[in-house]
Design a protein around this nucleic acid. Structure first.
Length: 1028
RNA sequence: GCCGGAGUGGCGGAAUUGGCAGACGCGCAGGAUUCAAAAUCCUGUUCUGGCAACAGAGUGUGGGUUCGAUUCCCACCUCCGGCACCA
């Protein structure tokens, strides 16, 4: 511990600049906040630990804005508090340093992204230190350095060398029985050799009839390789992506405009199936969903993850093709299949002459009146008739040029074309037309649906546009029916177009005359029958089952089956179960589970990212690098720009292709070329929390002893914008490592807290035009445009350069200091809430710090305040001290910092007017403010005569009895209205309270002439007298 | 459209299980100190009526449950966030 220099303050005023610099240097020189790992001499492993983590920042050129430190302040306060509470605290910081902005800058200026990034990191580090955060700077790291991405590549190789065994039941490292596990790829080979798995996949992949022997040994070496490659957790798959030839890269959905053009440069973007690296996150869908139970996260965030995973249950059903174009399967084939499939069960892959669909509502099978294939569905070309060929291929072409966003934007008007082909509804043998429409997507389910317009909104809309039959097979509950009919929710346009306007008119006019219903009285009169069984039985139900298409909405809820043969009268849930069983028995279908979650497209055609540690051989096979060959360093190139392609069909080489020396490798006389893609920015952030545990480890991503001690992350704080992707991706990687025993917890982040966004004020004139901040002046609570004198409205908006309302933390700190900044951000409001920055409020907390300063220091002399005394503390100051310790402790534990700060105000408001300030009260108070305002606390602690930093000083204890008031004021109500207040001893019992209340003069007067019915006493709160 | 979250003074916000609405801060008003200002300290500050004591209203709107509702229930309105034809 170094000897302290006296602080250079002029006289005794609160010189935050000097104080903060002094203590920041002290912490740095003494490595105050470094923490060792288990096994290091002096490290006490028996102490409890807390791993407190921030979502690390991208080191942008703009540096930190005031939004970043909000979460960082919170974790810092919690970390400092935890150290004083006796925890070993791991509180690290680093940089998510690969990414687009540095690369864009490099494209424009030629400056290497590593140079830009290092410069930005230096600036960010300076800013982070200026806030006085208690990070263990020895653990600082960035994802873009080879000694970091070496391990990112290593984890990728773990996934490359793995497959997912869905059936495997095992005891996982946390001791739970778990179904499904990633296993080494070599084990897949032996499983296949042993014939334990069917090789249907293999047949599909190699598409070789000669392999029909269904035996592993019949496959060629090449075929075996392909089979294995397609089962890896990291594999090359063909998926439709946003391909922008002009920019030479695949774009994320967010980078594509609604017009199907690139956000940057406005170039055309195409949906194109391209070969990309994929990570098989879908294998983990079930566990990612189920293990949300293990974590202590905000329920809305869990829900967002659940929705993103999007699990649904239902059934797969095969619909045979009855007729179609010349390439369509013949009736003979279909008949042979029908006859031959008896007892054969339900095939894993659909036969060529059936359309396999997925539905969540197998109970509506009888209501399927047509089918729809996605435009990309492989059967489309095959079944389309000659007549329809032209129109179908045009439709498919135009669909290809639409982005997903485009398709979504067209939701209002459904489009599609008839293929000319028909399918057979397997439950009732009815022939139904097969359509192609882009409201069905290839990426979900089987890319084909059975359309049940009677009970699905989208099918209903489509059927109305093309006037396809709509049949009711589920009877809604009476309330729904009654509402539709009595509210006259009829689609008159549709009735008009189908020539059935008369029915609606009759219904509305009150005369229902259809085949099944007798003439009835006026609808108005029927409305009065609402609830009468006759209304339902004789009007509503017959109308619904006959004319459900005339209503505005389809009925999508659960109900009772109708028009469904033997199933009639069955409730939906039971119907689902029974028909699924029947389908299985008949070999026509099976129960199935589906997820919205897609496998993760893991390739970017960029420069500034992790290279793939994979070599591509001449035969199309891949050769992964060996662990010992890592890191595969990013090569130098002259130009970072992706190559421009003028042919939309040609994928140009990514920037890494220009590293001519680097990209070609010869091993044992065989020529290999390196993979020229890089990984997305998410990769580095998927596991950084593990690297912080042991950042210097050269041989392993982190030592297993350290991992066992520090994991899981106890508290993870960051913005809600990462609620889905980052948190899901990181959980996925973690589970892969978990399956291979590299980590010991099933989940990485135990507790998650989402900080809100810091907004800012902006000003708009009457036309809604944004006025620059510097043009606005305030006069008596109203705002005016300085130039025109026009009154402008104050609105709350995101901070942005264009609004000129960005607040720079450097300026705030130079004016008020880091402690004031920290306290202000915490005092603004609840951590999770979005709230506007108001610089006008900062002096308030600054004043608080100055007042705390003056409690201890005499401003005139710079000596300790003469009011400090060694006398025993009086009751009043003792009470406020214990209240403050209690409140601040509880609030820090609960991350409710705003109310913790307000308690500091209360303490100061109580102590300031007092003539005497007992040391026994002031010293614990100084410790109490230390997490929130560490610099001033350290300085005061030192001035109070303590030799060393208070960072590890035990957190003050509070006494519940001392914190409690002796006398309390309680309200006396009559009929719930406060009529008087009385002061009573805090521990007074109910009887005493009641007596005291009734003895009060005001109450006596109020009660005059009334009878007391009842008296309710809430101890320590109120007395309510029920009297009239 | 669907799913979340939230609506409290001039402003940011506070309120254990249903128990005194507006803690704390800003702003504003008044006062003390000062030659004066800054800084500091003290007092007041939900609205309406009233000089005042006091009375009435009041937590987005309308209803309900309760001795008692910012809190629970039903319907609706507004804002923010997420998803978006997921069969």
């Amino acid at each position: 511990m170094s000897q302290q220099q006296p602080t250079p303050t002029n006289a005794g005023h609160y010189d935050f600049t000097a104080i903060e610099a002094k203590w920041q240097n002290h912490w740095q020189d003494n490595r105050t906040f470094s923490v060792d790992n288990p096994g290091t001499p002096g490290f006490d492993e028996t102490k409890p630990k807390r791993y407190v983590l921030d979502m690390f920042p991208y080191p942008s050129g703009a540096g930190l804005h005031v939004g970043h430190p909000l979460g960082y302040c919170a974790t810092d306060i919690y970390s400092r508090y935890s150290r004083m509470k006796g925890f070993n605290v791991l509180h690290p910081m680093g940089y998510d340093a690969f990414g687009l902005p540095a690369e864009q800058y490099a494209v424009e200026t030629g400056v290497h992204p590593a140079v830009t990034t290092e410069k930005n990191i230096a600036n960010m580090r300076r800013q982070l230190k200026m806030f006085g955060f208690s990070y263990d700077w020895n653990r600082e790291m960035a994802t873009c350095t080879p000694d970091y991405y070496k391990h990112t590549q290593w984890i990728f190789l773990q996934m490359y060398n793995a497959w997912y065994d869905e059936e495997c039941i095992w005891i996982d490292p946390s001791g739970r029985e778990t179904k499904g596990r990633a296993r080494h790829i070599d084990e897949l080979v032996s499983e296949l050799q042993a014939g334990k798995f069917g090789i249907d996949d293999a047949l599909e992949i190699v598409r070789d009839p000669a392999a029909a022997a269904h035996k592993w040994s019949d496959l060629s070496e090449d075929q075996r390789g392909k089979v294995i490659d397609q089962r890896r957790l990291a594999f090359i798959g063909e998926v439709p992506v946003n391909w922008c030839p002009a920019l030479g890269t695949v774009l994320a959905n967010e980078e594509v405009t609604n017009e199907g053009r690139s956000d940057r440069g406005n170039h055309p973007v195409f949906r194109k199936p391209l070969h990309q690296w994929m990570l098989r996150i879908t294998s983990y869908a079930e566990r990612l969903l189920a293990d949300l139970e293990l974590v202590d996260w905000p329920e809305p965030i869990k829900l967002m993850q659940r929705n993103w995973i999007g699990r649904s249950t239902g059934a797969e059903v095969d619909f045979p093709i009855a007729s179609g174009g010349p390439d369509a399967p013949t009736v003979g084939e279909y008949d042979r299949w029908r006859n031959g499939r008896q007892g054969a069960g339900y095939p894993a892959k659909p036969e060529e002459f059936v359309i396999r669909v997925y539905t969540t509502r197998p109970d509506t099978l009888y209501g399927a009146t047509y089918m729809v294939l996605a435009p990309e569905h492989p059967l489309v070309a095959k079944i389309t008739t000659e007549d329809q060929r032209q129109v179908v291929s045009e439709y498919v072409q135009s669909a290809q040029h639409k982005s997903d966003l485009d398709r979504a934007a067209d939701t209002k008007e459904k489009t599609g074309v008839f293929t000319g082909a028909y399918a057979i509804n397997p439950v009732n043998e009815k022939q139904i037309p097969i359509w192609v429409a882009d409201y069905v997507m290839m990426g979900y389910g089987t890319g084909a649906i059975m359309a049940v317009p009677g009970h699905d909104t989208r099918d209903f809309e489509f059927a109305k546009v093309f006037q396809l039959p709509i049949e009711a097979v589920v009877l809604p509950d009476v309330d729904w029916l009654t509402e539709q009919l009595t509210q006259q929710r009829f689609d008159r346009d549709y009735a008009d177009r189908t020539g059935r306007a008369g029915i609606v008119d009759a219904m509305v006019d009150g005369m229902v005359s259809t085949a099944n219903t007798l003439n009835y009285t006026a609808l108005n009169a029927l409305t009065m029958l609402d609830g009468d069984p006759a209304w339902t039985e004789q009007v509503a139900v017959p109308f619904f089952t006959e004319h459900c298409d005339l209503l505005m909405d389809s009925f999508t809820g659960e109900g009772t089956a109708v028009n469904s043969d033997d199933f009639d009268g069955m409730p939906t849930a039971q119907f689902k179960k029974e028909i699924t069983e029947a389908l299985v028995e008949a070999g026509l279908g099976k129960g199935a589970v589906n997820y919205k979650l897609r496998d993760w497209v893991f390739t970017r055609q960029r420069y500034w990212g992790e290279p793939f540690p994979i070599l591509h051989g001449p035969d199309g096979r891949m050769r992964p690098l060996d662990e010992s060959e890592l890191p595969l360093a990013l090569p130098e190139v002259e130009d970072y720009k992706p190559t421009v392609s003028h042919d939309e069909n040609v994928l140009p080489e990514p920037p890494l292709g220009r590293a001519t020396q680097w990209k070609d490798v010869e091993i044992d006389g065989v020529h290999y070329s390196r993979d020229l893609n890089t990984m997305p920015q998410w990769a580095g952030s998927c596991w950084y929390y593990l690297r912080f545990i042991d950042p210097g480890n050269d041989s392993r991503f982190c030592s297993s002893d350290a991992e066992k001690y520090w994991m899981p992350v106890d508290t993870y704080v960051g913005g809600a914008e990462h609620a889905v992707l980052h948190l899901l991706y990181a959980r996925f990687w973690h589970k892969v490592l978990f399956d291979f025993n590299h980590v010991t917890t099933a989940e990485p982040f135990k507790n998650l807290i989402n900080q809100g966004m810091i907004q800012s004020f902006a000003y708009k004139d009457k036309r809604g035009v944004i006025i620059s901040m510097d043009l606005v002046e305030e006069k008596s609570g109203k705002f005016f445009n300085r130039e025109t004198g026009e009154e402008v409205a104050q609105v709350i908006a995101k901070m942005s350069k264009s609004l000129k309302n960005v607040v720079n933390p450097d300026e705030i700190i130079s004016e008020y200091g880091a402690d004031a900044f920290r306290c202000y951000e915490m005092f603004m409001g609840p951590l999770e809430a979005s709230k506007p920055w108001n610089s006008r409020d900062v002096p308030g907390v600054f004043k608080l710090l100055k007042r705390i300063w003056r409690l201890v220091v005499d401003e005139d002399t710079g000596n300790l305040s003469p009011q400090l005394s060694d006398n025993p503390a009086d009751d009043a100051s003792l009470r406020v001290l214990h209240k403050t310790i209690k409140k601040v402790s509880e609030d820090i534990e609960a991350f409710k910092f705003n109310t913790a700060v307000s308690q500091l105000f209360e303490f100061v408001n109580t102590l300031t007017p007092m003539n005497e300030r007992p040391r026994s009260v002031i010293e614990p108070f100084v410790l109490t403010i230390a997490p929130l305002a560490p610099h001033i606390a350290e300085e005061l602690w030192q001035r109070l005569g303590h030799g060393q930093s208070l960072a590890y000083e035990p957190w003050p204890e509070y006494d519940e009895r001392l914190a409690a008031d002796d006398m309390v004021e309680i309200a006396v109500q009559i009929l719930g209205k406060v009529k008087a207040r009385i002061t009573v001893p805090a521990d007074a019992d109910d009887k005493t309270l009641e007596k005291a209340a009734l003895a009060d003069d005001k109450i006596k007067k109020e009660l005059h002439g009334k009878t007391i019915r009842k008296v309710i006493v809430v101890k320590g709160r109120l007395v309510n007298i029920v009297a009239n």
